[in-house]
Structures are given as structure tokens and as C-alpha cells.
Write a protein that binds this DNA or RNA. Structure first.
Lengths: 227, 227
DNA sequence: CCAAGCCTCCGGCAATAGCCGTAGAAGGCC
DNA sequence: GGCCTTCTACGGCTATTGCCGGAGGCTTGG
């Protein structure tokens, strides 16, 4: 996610006929003052002002790189608020609970804590889970578009996606397969019956598929207790 | 698609600690000689050689922009083979037929030519269709990942996606909703019964959903005959 | 009014980019 | 061997960048 944003910003500035304005646009998007930016880069404030004013027609890529990295670093230093907000912008109705673990959790530990039943034993449970998202899959079908998937993934795609209200489990797997980002794990909470196709799709993607019979409240509590 | 590739290449070169090597990488990916590149840019061949050798630590973005645009323009001048190949890389088993129209077709014209029945009359049929892809939706479920969607979209996402082997039509719409790229139109060929949910999803995406009762062979013939 | 924060404009200057042309190397073909 | 194609290394030179520092402007709060 961070690298994608990084590359996009750099690409945009580089290709812009008015790079100065593009730099300003992004600086304002990150809610960073010229003063803070110049301080972070260790240059005089007038340097930033001149760049944004377009005094330099063709800044060198080393300069662009430093500026882009400064945006991201400053944002991260202040809690990554802009990147986070971009990712979490408005919890949608279909997100029941979402959280980043303070320390990554080993996949087997997570499965154990939710009394999970592994439906894809052929796939090694060796991922490190950074967080989870509990999704009302019935509501998700009609309300989530691909843009919303970025919210679902929150700060990291190295997470467990937990689907509630699952009947056969096909739709979530189909949507996951279609999306460029892949979770570290998929959990179905009290599914009626997990279709063989859903398991096959999980195997094709190499994503562990876990089933749990915990009630939703209990499940969320346990996930949150993981840190 | 073109702009995405353009931005990605520029971003990559810009962020690279060794921009020269990145430039070379992409030049070779486009199968362009330094001579052709230098000729296209109207500079001496040794200029390109020096850039790729990393003689310039921090090329200006105007230079990077010119180089990236040269890659794309040269590729397009020779039939856009690399971009096309990237998009069409290996027709997969689930793509029954794919084609770019020589001239864009108005949506109503396409619908008429396949004797289509509009399931989403509330959505205006005002798109210009650049091409079509006929997909075996049964096979697509298990064989297509998100990367393959780029193949499905071919040269342009302004196309009609035609799904055969459709029962209720949910899965194709779910996959389309999850993917960042959206087609101009979706056609279901002889579906058993189009689920109300599928129609709802199409409406939510603002994508016209068309049903046709033509046999697959007849359908492909008619689409191909559109130009 | 004053101070602080934020920003703008511009002259100055060392360092580097952008590009040329030359000399040479390597590989393939006749 | 000679020729052609493709590429490399490098000196030279003009134009531009990267950055400083100074002067000044505007806004807000005490």
C-alpha cells in the first residue's frame, strides 16, 4: 500500500507538465506545511516555495524522490493519519469490526484463539497476521465496490478477513479472487455449509480458509484480545 | 491502461536508486534498441547509452517524461505489440473470443445486433464500445485471478463483457464489482435465470446488463461482424 | 504595536544535467 | 579483412538545477 502510493505520487509529479503544482497538491493532501516539509528535508523554506511556484521546470528525480518520501515519513511520524484515513475512510456498514494488532500474530495462534477449523490443511499456516476485518458478507455484496476493498484491508493486507452471514462461502472467495490485494487468511463465521468450490478457490489463491462456530460477539472479543 | 503503465514506469524510474538501470529494463521490455530510442528522441545514441550507464545520477523529470513517452510511442507506432501482449498475454481457456473493434460501436447498436434484452433500462445506453470479450463464466470462476482480468479487458475496458454458461448471473457481477476496472456493458448469453441480485449489482455499478438468447456461435459471429 | 508562523520572490553561485562528437569495442555477415 | 550495427566511455561546453540567504508580505493572537 505504502509503496503503491509512493510510486503513484512520484509518477504523477514526474509526468506533470507543472510539477510544482502537483507537489503542492500532494503536500496539501498530506496536510503538511512548507515549513514542516523544508524542516524535514533540511532545506530553506524558500526552496520548497520555489519548487511549488514552478521556478524549476524540470527538477531532478533525486529531488522528487526526497520530497515524496518526506510526505510519507512526516505522515507516518504523525500517526500516518492521512494514509490511515485514506484506507479507513468512513467505516462502512458492512465492516463490523476492524483492527490493527499492536504486534503481528502468528496464523496458528489466531486460528486457535477463535477455535477455528482449517478447511485448507494443504496450505501452510505460516503467515504473520497484522490485523483483522470482520465483514457482514450479506451487506457487503450490495454495498462494497472495489474502492471499498481498500477500506476492508485497512492498513495492511496481511490480515484475516472474517466473513459473517455466509451461506456457502462462494461470493467472498470470488470477490477476493477478483481483487488485486490478497488477505493472509479468510475466516467464515458460522457458515451454513462451505461449498466445495469455495475451498477450491481458496486453495487456488493459496489463502488459508478457516471456519469458526463462535458467535459473532465472542469472535470479535477474541480477535480484539489478540492485541 | 496506457496512462497507468505510463505512470507506473515514470514512478519506477523516478524512485529508483539506479534510474539508468530501470530505464534500460523498460527499454528492453519494450524491445527497443538504443538507436531507435535515440532516433525517436532526436538525440545522439551516446546520450541514451550514458543515461542507462548511470552517468547522470539524477536526471530531470522532463527527460524521464520524454523517455517514457518515447517507449510508449514507439511501441504504438509498431502496433502496440508490447502493450497488447501485456494485455492479451496468453489467451486463457475461459476467453472464448476477444476483439477490438476497428471503430467504436454505440451501445444500442451492439445490443440490437445481438438481439439483446436490456435488464437495466434505468441505465442509459450511451457508452461507446471499443471491443468485446466472450467469457466462459463457469471456467472463469476457477481459473481467473485478478491478474487475468487485465487480459479480459484487452486493450480497453470500454468493452462489452459477454458471459456464457450463466445460471443466475451473480458471480460475474460480484467479480466485476470487486475489480477496479469496469466494463462498459455486461451481456449474459442464454442465462438460466437472471437473479434479481445480479440486476441490482449492475445498477449499483451503473453498468448496463443485457441478456441474449443467441447461441454462442451466432453471438460471436455477430459481434465479430460489428467491425 | 509586536511577534510568530507561513509563504513569496529573487540574486547569486557551485554543482550537475543535457547533449555533442569522437574513438573504440564487440558481434555478425559477406 | 572489411563493413555494418549496436553499444560504451569520455572530454567538452552550455544551460539548468539545488540551495542559500535576504527582503518583504500577510494573517493571527497577545
Amino acid at each position: 500500500m505504502r509503496d503503491q502510493v509512493r510510486e503513484k505520487i512520484a509518477g504523477e509529479i514526474c509526468l506533470s507538465e507543472e510539477p510544482g503544482r502537483t507537489i503542492r497538491k500532494w503536500r496539501e493532501q498530506f496536510v503538511i506545511s512548507q515549513q514542516d516539509l523544508s524542516r524535514h528535508l533540511g532545506v530553506s523554506p524558500s526552496v520548497i516555495s520555489d519548487y511549488e511556484a514552478g521556478r524549476r521546470r524540470s527538477p531532478g528525480i533525486a529531488t522528487v524522490r526526497k520530497i515524496v518520501d518526506a510526505f510519507l515519513e512526516i505522515d507516518e511520524k504523525t500517526g500516518a493519519n492521512v494514509l490511515k484515513q485514506y484506507s479507513l475512510a468512513g467505516k462502512t456498514d458492512s465492516i463490523i469490526s476492524i483492527k490493527e494488532f499492536s504486534a503481528e500474530i502468528l496464523a496458528p495462534k489466531l486460528v486457535e484463539s477463535i477455535e477455528g477449523d482449517n478447511l485448507t490443511p494443504a496450505i501452510p499456516l505460516n503467515e504473520h497476521i497484522h490485523g483483522y476485518t470482520v465483514i457482514d458478507s450479506v451487506r457487503a455484496i450490495t454495498t462494497l465496490s472495489s474502492f471499498d476493498y481498500l477500506k476492508i484491508y485497512g492498513w495492511s493486507s496481511q490480515r484475516a478477513l472474517v466473513f459473517t452471514g455466509v451461506r456457502f462461502g462462494r461470493s467472498p472467495m470470488i470477490a477476493i479472487r477478483a481483487h488485486p490485494l490478497k488477505p493472509a487468511m479468510v475466516v467464515y463465521q458460522k457458515p451454513e455449509h462451505v461449498d466445495e468450490l469455495a475451498i477450491r478457490l481458496a486453495e487456488l489463491e493459496g489463502i488459508p480458509l478457516i471456519r469458526t462456530s463462535l458467535a459473532i460477539g465472542d469472535l470479535v472479543d477474541r480477535l480484539q484480545a489478540l492485541g
